[in-house]
């Protein structure tokens, strides 16, 4: 029946430790054709390090649980084939760095959940039809659907220097949540206005368009070009455009200009 898969020994160099510190530990394990990094980690867990902490769920790139840095690259462990890595040297696997360590490969990402809670929720316009439903063209939802592919793996948060190096967690929501705001702002039915929050509280200005986030997104969302830049433009139009400044002098309570939505 099934072809026998050829096996080969590789060395996994896994970071073990917790908030108080830790170090890399080498594990030798056999790998067969098609194995992904998560499989190898599980094999180590089952046979050599039973208390090795690792998050995962779907093993198919759909849930965004298994984020880690593999040979220094932020990736999903379940979508990284070992055969695509050099196996003549140890494969290093460490937790994502932008968030505090809990144990081994598991980090405390709860900050992300707090950030999302703060963002104004979806608020639809009145239904279009008497039966309470809406009409939207596919072309009008394509862009939002791109943003809604996000699996909340937080790899983009991990690479963004504003969070990773400058620790601006209190002032900047990070690429993931800029994508989230973009998905809400560009939702054809949404009526809420998030531009002031975006400018002040969410810190969209911190992003200097390095595009590192876009490069690591496993869902291939064009985070910078399609989400962040249009949001920055909206903020500029709203706050630094002479017509809008006049409008806001007349309506200080931030009544939106008609048709500010696309």
């Amino acid at each position: 029946m099934a072809e026998t898969a050829t096996t080969q020994m590789v060395t996994l160099r896994i970071w073990r430790g917790d908030a108080n510190g830790g170090s890399f530990v080498d594990y030798q394990t056999p790998v067969s054709h098609g194995m992904v990094v998560l499989d190898a980690v599980h094999q180590v867990q089952a046979t050599q390090a039973m208390d090795l902490a690792v998050r995962w769920n779907c093993k198919a790139g759909k849930c965004g649980s298994c984020s880690a840095e593999i040979n220094g690259n932020p990736r999903l462990m379940c979508m990284t084939q070992i055969a695509h890595l050099p196996t003549d040297q140890p494969i290093t696997i460490e937790p994502i760095q932008a968030f505090p360590s809990i144990k081994d490969l598991v980090t405390d990402v709860s900050w992300n959940y707090e950030v999302k809670k703060r963002i104004k929720p979806f608020q639809p316009r009145e239904p279009d039809a008497a039966d309470g439903t809406w009409r939207m063209e596919q072309a009008d939802v394509d862009r939002v659907q791109e943003f809604r592919k996000c699996i909340e793996c937080f790899l983009c948060q991990d690479v963004c220097h504003v969070l990773r190096d400058h620790h601006k967690h209190a002032e900047f929501i990070g690429p993931r949540f800029l994508v989230h705001v973009a998905a809400l702002e560009m939702h054809p039915l949404d009526t809420a206005d998030r531009l002031e929050d975006l400018k002040d509280r969410d810190g969209v200005g911190y992003c200097n368009i390095t595009k590192c986030c876009t490069k690591v997104c496993p869902e291939h969302i064009t985070i910078t070009d399609n989400a962040i830049i249009p949001l920055k433009e909206r903020v500029v139009d709203e706050y630094y455009d002479p017509l809008m400044m006049l409008w806001r002098m007349i309506f200080p309570k931030r009544q939106p200009l008609p048709m500010v939505k696309p």
Binding site: A2, A5, S32, H33, G34, M35, V36, D39, K59, A60
Partner: peptide, 8 residues
């Protein structure tokens, strides 16, 4: 196939 993704 590959064996490691069997079942997905």
């Amino acid at each position: 196939w590959p064996l490691s993704v069997r079942g997905i």
